[in-house]
Amino acid sequence: MSVAEVIKSIARIEHVRVDDVKVVYENGVTALDGVKLDIGRGLTVLLGPNGAGKTTLLNVVSGIVMPRRGKVVLNGILNLLGLNDSNRALVRRLHYSYLIQEDVFLEHLTVLENIVLPYKLFKMDPPLDYVQEIIEALGINHLLDRRPTGLSGGERRKVSLARALVKAKDASVVLLDEPTSNLDRDSIEVLLDIIKQLRRDKVVVIATHDQLLGDVADVRVYLRGGRVESIS
């Protein structure tokens, strides 16, 4: 059985273990240093000041950034960082949903096309009912036919969230980087409701400064200077 077949055979990722991860960027800055973390089902929130390494940790967990040393072990058996580039991508495609920090879109596509991009990219049919549900929940129905250009900051964030949350339906690991930035209070409440649903059967990791999210987290991880300061 090939590695790709092994990845495809995994039904769900229940557990992610970050083992002694060290990330040093080109400019010599150490973003993560000896981070060890066990992340199970439920909501794990990464907290910490700017530059603490939250986003880098999400990038490592998603296999986008390769650390200088360390492992990211899925379900206790599969070292994500030991896979080659295409297999890591396969893991992300099949099991991950990742909301990156920036609101990036393919500008030539409409908002709706950007939301279903995770499916269209791989020629899959998106779960339209669920898509509609997320869109309505976030209140972005009126934006669907527009191009991303010209959207406000909050609208862009909502569209990004919608894309990640739609993808989250089929994912077992949900990574959200600053999901509440630029969102108003009502939208944050809606997001919290959705996250509460996701946390029941998925590994949800959120990097945020929003204490509101911290309050509802199952696990709170405080990072500082690239190290885990505390876990509660």
Partner: peptide
């Protein structure tokens, strides 16, 4: 970054 996060490989 977006495409990577959506599951495309880096080389692609």
């Amino acid at each position: 970054k977006l495409l990577l996060s959506l599951g495309l490989s880096r080389s692609r």
